[in-house]
Amino acid sequence: MKTQEELTEIVRDHFSDMGEIATLYVQVYESSLESLVGGVIFEDGRHYTFVYENEDLVYE
């Protein structure tokens, strides 16, 4: 089982391919040991929310 830090790094690596990240945040109250819920804001102003669970990243 991966730690929350490892899950965060996986998500950061994925989004870094889309541009320069200004902020990546995790909603700790919605996340667990198996899933990571949060959002990412890019330097150009784009903002996505995401759920990473079971090695699957869903964002909008």
Rank of each mutant, 00 (worst) to 15 (best):
15 F>V: 02
32 S>F: 09
38 G>V: 03
36 L>N: 00
3 T>H: 05
48 Y>T: 01
39 G>D: 06
54 N>I: 05
22 A>N: 08
21 I>N: 02
55 E>R: 09
14 H>P: 01
20 E>V: 14
28 V>W: 11
60 E>D: 08
9 E>H: 11
33 L>E: 10
4 Q>V: 09
32 S>V: 10
48 Y>H: 02
51 V>I: 13
6 E>D: 09
29 Y>R: 05
43 E>G: 10
49 T>Y: 07
50 F>N: 00
11 V>K: 01
32 S>L: 11
42 F>A: 00
23 T>Q: 10
43 E>M: 15
43 E>Q: 13
57 L>M: 07
15 F>Y: 03
6 E>F: 08
27 Q>P: 03
33 L>V: 12
49 T>K: 13
38 G>S: 00
20 E>W: 09
35 S>P: 04
54 N>K: 15
13 D>I: 14
54 N>A: 10
22 A>I: 11
52 Y>M: 06
57 L>D: 01
60 E>A: 13
7 L>G: 02
10 I>Q: 07
43 E>F: 13
29 Y>N: 07
6 E>Q: 09
34 E>M: 14
17 D>Y: 15
5 E>C: 12
16 S>T: 10
19 G>H: 02
21 I>F: 03
31 S>Y: 13
1 M>F: 14
33 L>W: 10
34 E>Y: 10
7 L>Y: 04
11 V>S: 01
34 E>R: 08
26 V>F: 06
30 E>N: 15
3 T>D: 05
56 D>M: 15
48 Y>F: 11
5 E>H: 11
45 G>L: 04
58 V>Q: 11
8 T>I: 11
11 V>A: 05
2 K>G: 05
44 D>W: 02
52 Y>F: 10
53 E>I: 15
9 E>L: 13
26 V>N: 02
52 Y>V: 05
58 V>P: 01
9 E>R: 14
41 I>Y: 09
56 D>T: 15
58 V>Y: 13
26 V>L: 07
39 G>P: 00
35 S>Y: 15
18 M>S: 04
40 V>E: 00
29 Y>S: 07
57 L>V: 07
60 E>Y: 14
19 G>A: 04
35 S>E: 06
41 I>S: 04
46 R>Y: 03
37 V>W: 11
39 G>R: 09
11 V>I: 09
27 Q>N: 13
21 I>D: 01
51 V>K: 14
21 I>Y: 02
23 T>H: 11
18 M>E: 04
5 E>N: 09
59 Y>W: 11
37 V>G: 06
10 I>T: 08
24 L>H: 01
12 R>M: 09
12 R>S: 05
11 V>M: 05
58 V>H: 13
28 V>D: 07
55 E>K: 14
45 G>A: 04
29 Y>E: 06
25 Y>R: 03
51 V>N: 07
10 I>R: 10
53 E>R: 15
8 T>E: 14
40 V>I: 08
34 E>H: 10
16 S>N: 10
13 D>M: 14
18 M>V: 05
46 R>M: 05
20 E>N: 14
60 E>I: 15
31 S>I: 08
5 E>Q: 12
22 A>E: 07
38 G>W: 03
3 T>A: 05
17 D>K: 15
44 D>K: 01
47 H>V: 07
7 L>D: 01
34 E>F: 08
49 T>I: 10
51 V>M: 10
44 D>P: 01
55 E>M: 12
49 T>G: 04
49 T>E: 04
19 G>S: 03
52 Y>P: 00
1 M>L: 13
22 A>W: 09
19 G>T: 02
54 N>D: 08
21 I>K: 01
44 D>F: 02
4 Q>R: 12
42 F>Y: 05
8 T>Y: 11
15 F>P: 00
13 D>R: 14
39 G>I: 14
4 Q>Y: 11
31 S>Q: 11
28 V>K: 15
30 E>S: 14
21 I>L: 06
30 E>I: 15
31 S>V: 10
48 Y>E: 00
47 H>I: 07
33 L>P: 13
39 G>E: 12
32 S>P: 07
48 Y>R: 00
50 F>G: 00
50 F>V: 01
28 V>S: 12
46 R>T: 07
42 F>W: 03
17 D>G: 14
44 D>Q: 02
41 I>F: 08
40 V>N: 00
31 S>W: 12
36 L>E: 00
21 I>M: 04
57 L>A: 02
18 M>L: 10
38 G>E: 01
52 Y>H: 02
15 F>E: 01
22 A>C: 13
8 T>M: 12
19 G>M: 03
44 D>A: 02
6 E>I: 07
3 T>R: 07
32 S>G: 09
7 L>H: 03
16 S>D: 07
14 H>I: 15
59 Y>P: 03
10 I>Y: 09
42 F>K: 00
8 T>A: 09
29 Y>I: 06
11 V>N: 01
26 V>A: 04
24 L>D: 00
14 H>Q: 09
27 Q>F: 12
29 Y>C: 07
26 V>P: 01
35 S>C: 09
11 V>E: 01
44 D>H: 02
12 R>A: 07
42 F>Q: 00
11 V>T: 03
36 L>T: 02
33 L>Q: 13
58 V>T: 12
31 S>R: 08
13 D>S: 15
47 H>K: 08
6 E>K: 06
38 G>I: 04
23 T>A: 12
13 D>H: 14
32 S>E: 11
17 D>M: 15
48 Y>G: 01
48 Y>A: 02
47 H>L: 05
52 Y>L: 09
23 T>I: 11
59 Y>S: 05
40 V>L: 04
54 N>M: 10
33 L>T: 12
15 F>L: 06
35 S>V: 13
28 V>F: 10
14 H>G: 05
3 T>C: 06
10 I>G: 04
16 S>M: 11
31 S>T: 08
12 R>C: 06
49 T>R: 10
53 E>F: 14
8 T>W: 08
23 T>V: 13
10 I>N: 05
49 T>D: 03
13 D>E: 12
56 D>I: 15
2 K>T: 05
50 F>C: 01
43 E>K: 15
15 F>Q: 00
12 R>P: 01
60 E>H: 14
8 T>C: 09
38 G>T: 02
47 H>A: 07
59 Y>K: 05
60 E>Q: 14
1 M>A: 11
50 F>M: 00
4 Q>S: 06
3 T>M: 05
50 F>Q: 00
45 G>V: 01
32 S>M: 13
26 V>D: 01
42 F>H: 00
56 D>Y: 15
10 I>W: 10
59 Y>C: 06
27 Q>G: 08
40 V>R: 00
57 L>W: 05
55 E>W: 09
60 E>C: 13
16 S>K: 14
10 I>S: 05
54 N>H: 12
6 E>P: 03
34 E>G: 14
14 H>C: 08
7 L>V: 06
39 G>A: 08
15 F>D: 01
35 S>T: 12
32 S>R: 06
16 S>F: 06
46 R>S: 07
41 I>D: 03
45 G>F: 04
37 V>E: 08
13 D>W: 14
47 H>R: 08
5 E>T: 08
42 F>L: 07
21 I>G: 02
59 Y>M: 09
1 M>T: 12
58 V>C: 11
42 F>C: 02
13 D>P: 04
3 T>N: 08
50 F>L: 01
26 V>S: 04
15 F>H: 00
20 E>K: 15
4 Q>N: 05
45 G>S: 04
2 K>V: 05
41 I>A: 04
19 G>P: 02
4 Q>P: 06
44 D>C: 03
47 H>C: 07
16 S>W: 07
13 D>N: 13
2 K>H: 08
9 E>F: 11
47 H>G: 04
8 T>D: 03
7 L>S: 02
24 L>W: 05
13 D>Q: 13
56 D>S: 15
43 E>V: 14
38 G>L: 03
3 T>S: 13
23 T>W: 11
26 V>Y: 05
4 Q>G: 05
15 F>K: 01
11 V>P: 01
32 S>D: 11
14 H>N: 06
48 Y>K: 01
39 G>F: 14
53 E>N: 14
32 S>W: 09
23 T>Y: 14
50 F>D: 00
39 G>M: 10
11 V>F: 03
7 L>F: 04
48 Y>D: 00
19 G>D: 02
32 S>T: 12
26 V>G: 03
6 E>L: 07
12 R>E: 04
50 F>I: 01
1 M>E: 08
37 V>H: 10
25 Y>I: 05
41 I>E: 05
25 Y>C: 05
54 N>L: 08
15 F>A: 03
24 L>N: 00
4 Q>H: 06
31 S>G: 10
15 F>I: 03
8 T>H: 06
23 T>C: 12
48 Y>V: 05
9 E>T: 11
